[in-house]
Deep mutational scan, measured.
Amino acid sequence: TIDEIIKALEQAVKDNKPIQVGNYTVTSADEAEKLAKKLKKEY
C-alpha cells in the first residue's frame, strides 16, 4: 500500500540509505518527500 511505501521511505531516510521504489531511486529526505507527495496524488 501507499502507507507502506511511505514508511519504507521514512525508514530509509533515517538510515540514510538510498532506496528503490518502483522506477524511482530515492537518496535523500527531500526526494523521499517529493516522491511521497507524488504517490499520494496518484493513488
Rank of each mutant, 00 (worst) to 15 (best):
residue 1 T to P: 10
residue 1 T to G: 11
residue 2 I to K: 02
residue 2 I to Q: 03
residue 2 I to G: 03
residue 2 I to W: 12
residue 3 D to L: 14
residue 4 E to Y: 10
residue 4 E to Q: 12
residue 4 E to P: 03
residue 5 I to V: 09
residue 5 I to K: 01
residue 5 I to F: 04
residue 5 I to S: 01
residue 6 I to S: 01
residue 6 I to Q: 01
residue 6 I to C: 06
residue 7 K to Y: 10
residue 7 K to F: 09
residue 7 K to M: 11
residue 7 K to P: 03
residue 8 A to W: 13
residue 8 A to H: 03
residue 8 A to F: 10
residue 8 A to K: 09
residue 9 L to H: 00
residue 9 L to W: 03
residue 9 L to Q: 02
residue 9 L to K: 00
residue 10 E to R: 06
residue 10 E to D: 05
residue 10 E to V: 07
residue 11 Q to Y: 04
residue 12 A to Y: 15
residue 12 A to G: 06
residue 12 A to L: 09
residue 12 A to T: 04
residue 13 V to P: 02
residue 13 V to W: 10
residue 13 V to T: 06
residue 13 V to S: 07
residue 13 V to Y: 08
residue 14 K to D: 03
residue 14 K to T: 08
residue 14 K to G: 06
residue 14 K to M: 12
residue 14 K to C: 13
residue 15 D to R: 01
residue 15 D to Y: 10
residue 15 D to M: 08
residue 15 D to E: 09
residue 16 N to T: 04
residue 16 N to L: 07
residue 16 N to R: 08
residue 17 K to S: 08
residue 17 K to Q: 10
residue 17 K to N: 09
residue 17 K to A: 06
residue 18 P to D: 00
residue 18 P to L: 07
residue 18 P to W: 05
residue 18 P to E: 05
residue 18 P to M: 05
residue 18 P to K: 04
residue 18 P to Y: 04
residue 18 P to T: 07
residue 19 I to T: 09
residue 19 I to N: 01
residue 19 I to W: 04
residue 20 Q to E: 10
residue 20 Q to F: 06
residue 20 Q to R: 14
residue 20 Q to T: 15
residue 21 V to N: 02
residue 21 V to T: 02
residue 21 V to H: 04
residue 22 G to K: 00
residue 22 G to Q: 04
residue 22 G to C: 11
residue 22 G to T: 02
residue 22 G to V: 04
residue 22 G to Y: 07
residue 23 N to E: 15
residue 23 N to Q: 14
residue 23 N to A: 11
residue 24 Y to W: 09
residue 24 Y to M: 10
residue 24 Y to C: 14
residue 24 Y to T: 05
residue 25 T to K: 08
residue 25 T to A: 08
residue 25 T to E: 08
residue 26 V to D: 02
residue 26 V to R: 00
residue 26 V to Y: 04
residue 26 V to Q: 02
residue 26 V to F: 04
residue 27 T to W: 13
residue 27 T to G: 09
residue 27 T to S: 14
residue 27 T to E: 12
residue 27 T to Q: 12
residue 27 T to N: 14
residue 28 S to T: 14
residue 28 S to K: 00
residue 28 S to Q: 02
residue 28 S to F: 03
residue 29 A to I: 09
residue 29 A to M: 07
residue 29 A to L: 07
residue 30 D to N: 07
residue 30 D to V: 09
residue 31 E to F: 04
residue 31 E to W: 01
residue 31 E to P: 00
residue 32 A to Q: 01
residue 32 A to T: 01
residue 32 A to C: 03
residue 32 A to Y: 03
residue 32 A to V: 05
residue 32 A to R: 00
residue 32 A to K: 03
residue 33 E to Q: 12
residue 33 E to S: 06
residue 34 K to P: 00
residue 35 L to E: 01
residue 35 L to G: 01
residue 35 L to S: 00
residue 35 L to F: 01
residue 36 A to W: 13
residue 36 A to E: 02
residue 36 A to C: 14
residue 36 A to K: 04
residue 36 A to M: 15
residue 37 K to G: 07
residue 37 K to A: 14
residue 38 K to D: 10
residue 38 K to N: 05
residue 39 L to E: 01
residue 39 L to H: 02
residue 39 L to D: 02
residue 40 K to N: 05
residue 40 K to G: 06
residue 40 K to E: 08
residue 40 K to W: 11
residue 40 K to M: 12
residue 41 K to G: 12
residue 41 K to A: 15
residue 41 K to I: 12
residue 41 K to Q: 15
residue 41 K to Y: 12
residue 41 K to M: 12
residue 42 E to T: 06
residue 42 E to P: 04
residue 42 E to Q: 10
residue 42 E to V: 06
residue 42 E to F: 11
residue 42 E to D: 11
residue 42 E to H: 10
residue 42 E to Y: 09
residue 43 Y to K: 08
residue 43 Y to S: 07
